[in-house]
């Protein structure tokens, strides 16, 4: 995810080339006048588009002070929505840890005919508009289901929608790591008498864990934030299937921006924590390599 932050230091190249690569260090690093101007313009745009509006959410949430903040959260409907969101996102993350790793394993180690099609199917939830994702799931698991499974407007529908939109994250982070993994070590382990389970647990799994955690973090963040796929599918019933994003929308539509901003701030903080955690994780992993 945070590819923008994996800046490999210039010194990471082979030592033999380092001498030839030497050049006036100041010219590489310092901003010239034109790049300084470009940075300035980019930062103004980024601030107007992202930073100032997000700050406005936090400011709006804090206008009522700490008491106002707590009061919004004590609203039973709001707290039910937040609890449902977190619980469902955690559940879906767990499902993705297990299924995502399994799918990545099958795609890398068991290249059977038709595996290429599965590879494309994995990306569909990424590309499909979320409202279409909801409609898609509704056509198999809704009131007109050809297999008579109707989960529309139940909590199972929330889980199903989140499972759909978060499918690619763990698969796509684990897959490349599994491809790079040296099979020699596994063979050494098994030739030394390790059972398959033991080899998996002690040899393969440890090298996959950072990737699994990164994918799980992204899946969790997405699950917390999801809105579009739930609109048609979950019915948005208060206390039952209403998630945090839907709660924000109904607060906005009801003219209660302050309460919308409080819930939005909580979602924002969760997203920030996940981003920073993933950034730190990636830094630790790249350092170890």
């Amino acid at each position: 995810m945070t590819t923008a932050t994996t800046l490999t230091p210039e010194t990471g190249v082979r030592p033999g080339r380092a001498a030839r690569k030497r050049r006036p260090a100041r010219a590489v690093s310092a901003l010239t006048r034109s790049s300084g101007l470009a940075l300035g313009v980019s930062l103004v745009w980024f601030s107007l588009l992202v930073l100032i509006p997000l700050a406005a959410v936090v400011v709006q949430a804090s206008t009522g002070g700490w008491d106002g903040f707590v009061k919004v959260l004590q609203n039973p409907q709001t707290s039910a929505a937040l609890k449902l969101t977190v619980v469902q996102a955690l559940g879906v993350t767990l499902l993705n840890v297990v299924m995502g790793t399994t799918i990545a394993w099958v795609l890398v180690r068991d290249r059977f005919r038709g595996a290429a099609i599965l590879d494309v199917i994995i990306d569909i939830p990424f590309a499909l508009p979320t409202i279409v994702a909801g409609l898609v799931l509704l056509s198999l698991y809704g009131p007109k289901s050809p297999i008579d499974v109707n989960v529309a407007s139940t909590r199972a529908a929330v889980f199903l929608a989140l499972a759909f939109v978060t499918l690619p994250f763990v698969v796509r982070t684990v897959q490349p790591v599994l491809e790079e993994l040296d099979t020699d070590v596994e063979e050494a382990a098994s030739s030394l008498g390790a059972t398959r389970l033991y080899t998996f647990r002690r040899v393969i799994l440890p090298s996959l864990v950072p990737a699994i955690v990164a994918g799980a973090g992204m899946a969790f963040a997405r699950g917390i934030a999801e809105y579009g796929s739930l609109v048609l599918l979950s019915g948005n019933l208060p206390f039952k299937t209403e998630v945090a994003s839907v709660r924000i929308i109904s607060s906005i539509e009801g003219g209660n921006t302050a309460s919308a901003a409080v819930v939005a701030t909580i979602l924002l903080v969760i997203a920030l924590v996940v981003i920073v955690a993933l950034d730190l994780l990636q830094r630790r992993v790249t350092k170890r390599w």
Partner: peptide
């Protein structure tokens, strides 16, 4: 990572 609804708000 921000919810689209939060972006809109």
């Amino acid at each position: 990572s921000v919810s689209p609804v939060v972006v809109g708000l």
